[in-house]
Simulated scan of single mutants.
Amino acid sequence: MADEAVSLIHHVELNIFKQFAAITHKHHIHYIALGGTMLGAVRHQGFIPWDDDMDVGMLRADYEQFLKVTSDDLKDTHYFLQTPWTDENYALSYSKLLDRNTFIEEKNNVNNARKGVFLDIFPLDKIPDSPARQRRQILDMRRLDSRIYLKLRYNVIDNPIRKFQNPLSEEQVETADDFKEQREAVMTMYNDKPALTNVKNLASQYAYDKEILSLDELNDIVNLPFEDTEIRVPADYDAILTRIYGDYMELPPENARTEKHIVRLITDNQEFEL
């Protein structure tokens, strides 16, 4: 059953990605595959078989352009662009393109934001060269993350009382929005510094140094096969994947080949437990 569910998730995610790629192509917006999606393209020419999400990234200017144009392009579709501003209950610092014809529950992530199979879309922001300033930026961002998660009632486990809670008050939403604006200011504080040449997905799950990218790496892009389509990756993907994973062509042990995020999927009136 789990294998069938992961195959269904891959099928939905691939269609989401194709919608995303069509929008970026139409508007000349640049993106790259990140993390496990880049690894999947290189090692498997598609999804890592046991993975259950897709990650892409964009320089902040492209990211903002994508957010601006997408609402028109998604009209009359079953997709929803979830951002800190389109879903008041959504606490994360990046965006998700959701399939509204699906519903999911995620591991260790209980909240009232909209749910569906998704594509993660991360902004890539400039970072300072100074390690001390790097630490200050990421700590300030994480402090604001924590405040937003608390305000929007994000929990690791479900609480039966949650269903009886009142919706967020106008004051609570405004406070959360203020924290979101502060967080974005922290994330983008170095983007106007021409001398800085490194960017980072500040919401990355990896250790800080592992997913730092140079602007040169982002300017040299190739297309790789990904299932029945193609995906953009930096031409120097070998160096990037080695930084993140070490010997990335070696498969992990079988007991580590498990889904990371989704524990329940509902689609086409069918329910799957992963």
Rank of each mutant, 00 (worst) to 15 (best):
D52N: 03
V156A: 02
D129G: 04
Y149C: 12
N89D: 03
I148R: 09
F122R: 13
L98A: 01
L74F: 04
D87M: 04
R100P: 01
L59G: 04
S95F: 03
D73N: 11
R133C: 05
S71P: 14
I138G: 06
S71Q: 15
I148D: 05
T83L: 00
T77F: 03
I104E: 05
F118I: 02
R153Q: 13
K163I: 12
I121H: 02
V110E: 10
D125W: 12
P49C: 02
W85T: 13
D51I: 12
W50A: 03
L74V: 00
M141L: 13
N108V: 00
R135C: 06
Y79K: 04
I104S: 10
K68M: 09
K75D: 13
T77R: 01
R162Q: 13
L98Q: 03
S95V: 01
L124K: 06
W50T: 07
D145N: 14
R60G: 03
K75I: 13
A91Y: 08
A61N: 15
K107W: 05
Y63P: 15
N111S: 04
R153H: 13
F80D: 08
D52V: 01
Q137M: 10
L81P: 05
K151D: 02
P49G: 00
P167F: 00
M141R: 15
E64L: 15
R153E: 08
D62A: 00
L119W: 07
L168V: 10
I127F: 10
I148S: 03
L119S: 07
V69C: 07
P160S: 00
N111Y: 01
K163T: 07
K163R: 15
I104W: 10
R60E: 08
D140G: 08
D72S: 11
F164H: 11
Q82A: 08
Q82K: 12
A91Q: 05
Q65H: 15
N101H: 12
L139T: 15
V173F: 05
D87E: 04
L74R: 04
Y149H: 13
A61D: 13
Y79N: 02
D99Q: 09
I148M: 07
I48V: 00
